[in-house]
């Protein structure tokens, strides 16, 4: 099944005694944009954060079940968190550029992981130009690579947060409501960017905005109370929901 990027089987997750994910089994296809919708508190962020194992930051989290990314169970003991996070990048709700320059934000991953010979100035320069070009920031920022990233506009910051993943050649990019801090133009710009990255990366995007899910994603997952209710092509899910709970949600009956 080489066209699957992420598969989970019977994934359960508890925050201390509270169960936030229940028997989640999904298959996320390679190279597509899959959106994750559902009412507030249903576990979208939690599920997303399982895929790069940042949930484990909290000592009180317990997980059972299996998550395979590129065929490898990421909970296997021989999995290196560092390698996992290189291939599974994450973009957060609030743009969170590192408190460094634009340039250093883009090469942070390389500096952290790179062998010495990869850290030659020329190579880094090349990586910066490539990554910033991919997200459409190069022309705007090529003369301001030394400015502090936090002084950029929010939209640029969020693009930068995507750009800094790219030098690590990720397989999957997880995005948790990446547009919720942006205005209409910023939102459109990010959506266009995601569209342009399609095919090369598997993208999983959490959104509260159903119009965005419809516009921007190929497949759509509907979650409720920690369970996956429905997972189909976006068009089908919105036009012909199979589960009555999905129908209710997309007609706008829950928050």
């Amino acid at each position: 099944m080489m066209d699957l990027s992420i598969t989970t089987r019977d994934l359960n997750l508890w925050y201390a005694k509270f169960q936030a994910l229940r028997q989640v089994s999904v298959e996320i296809k390679h190279g597509l944009i899959t959106s994750l919708i559902g009412p507030s508190g249903c576990g979208k962020t939690t599920l997303l954060r399982c895929f790069n194992r940042v949930n484990e930051r909290y000592g009180y989290v317990t997980t059972t079940g299996e998550i395979r990314i590129l065929g490898k169970n990421i909970y296997d003991p021989d999995v290196s968190l560092v390698e996992l996070r290189k291939s599974v990048g994450m973009v957060f709700q609030r743009p969170n550029p590192l408190p460094l320059s634009v340039y250093e934000n883009v090469v942070f991953g390389l500096r952290i992981h790179g062998e010495r010979h990869e850290l030659e100035r020329a190579r880094l320069d090349e990586a910066v130009e490539k990554a910033l070009s991919e997200v459409g920031l190069w022309d705007d920022l090529k003369d301001r690579l030394d400015t502090k990233a936090s002084t950029l506009q929010l939209e640029q910051q969020q693009k930068l947060c995507i750009a800094r993943l790219l030098p690590l050649k990720p397989e999957v990019i997880l995005l948790d409501e990446p547009c919720s801090a942006l205005d209409v133009d910023g939102t459109r710009a990010i959506e266009e960017l995601l569209f342009s990255l399609k095919g090369r990366y598997t993208m999983l995007i959490v959104t509260h905005n159903m119009a965005q899910a419809r516009r921007a994603s190929d497949e759509c997952l509907y979650m409720l109370l920690g369970e996956i209710v429905e997972h189909r092509r976006t068009e089908d899910l919105f036009l012909h929901p199979q589960d009555p709970r999905t129908a209710e949600y997309i007609e706008g009956r829950y928050g």
């Binding site: 940042v54 994450m90 957060f92 969170n96 550029p97 942070f108 952290i112």
Partner: peptide
């Protein structure tokens, strides 16, 4: 968010 940004990039 700062710490998570760094951790999510694979920093220890």
């Amino acid at each position: 968010g700062l710490r998570e940004a760094s951790l999510a990039l694979g920093a220890t």
